[in-house]
Computed example of a mutant assay.
Amino acid sequence: MIPARFAPVLFGFLLSGLMSFVVSGIATWRAAGLPEGFLGVWMGAWLSSWLVAFPTVLVVAPVVRRIVARVTFQPPAEDR
C-alpha cells in the first residue's frame, strides 16, 4: 500500500497516464490513419505525451483547484 500523503501525486500520475493514452491514440489515428505498426507509433506518442502531461498535471492542478473554489459556492447546510 502507498501512504495517503502520496494520493495527489498518484492521482496525477494515473490521470495523466490515462488521458494522454486516449488523446495520443486519437491524435495518432487522425494524423496517420491505421498504418502498419500503428500500435508502436501510438505507444511512442503516448510515452512522450505522458512525460509532458504528468509534471504539467502536478503544476496545474493546484491552480485549477483555486479557480474552481473561486467560481463555485457551498450552499448553506439547511439547503443540502
Rank of each mutant, 00 (worst) to 15 (best):
V71I: 15
E78F: 11
L15E: 09
I67G: 06
W42E: 06
I2M: 07
W50C: 02
R66K: 14
R80P: 00
L51D: 03
F13T: 09
W29I: 12
A32N: 13
L14G: 10
A31K: 13
P55C: 11
P35A: 08
T28N: 09
S49I: 03
W46A: 05
M43C: 06
I26M: 07
F21P: 02
R65H: 10
F54H: 05
R5T: 09
A31H: 04
G12T: 03
Q74T: 15
A7V: 05
M43Q: 12
L34G: 03
M43G: 00
V22G: 00
V52L: 14
L14F: 13
R70T: 09
W50V: 03
F13R: 02
L10D: 01
L15S: 14
T28E: 11
D79V: 14
P76R: 14
E36G: 11
E36W: 05
W42T: 07
P35I: 11
P3T: 10
V63R: 09
R66E: 11
S24I: 04
W50I: 01
A31W: 00
A61T: 15
L14H: 06
V60E: 04
D79E: 15
A4D: 11
I26T: 10
V41S: 12
P3G: 08
G25F: 10
G37R: 06
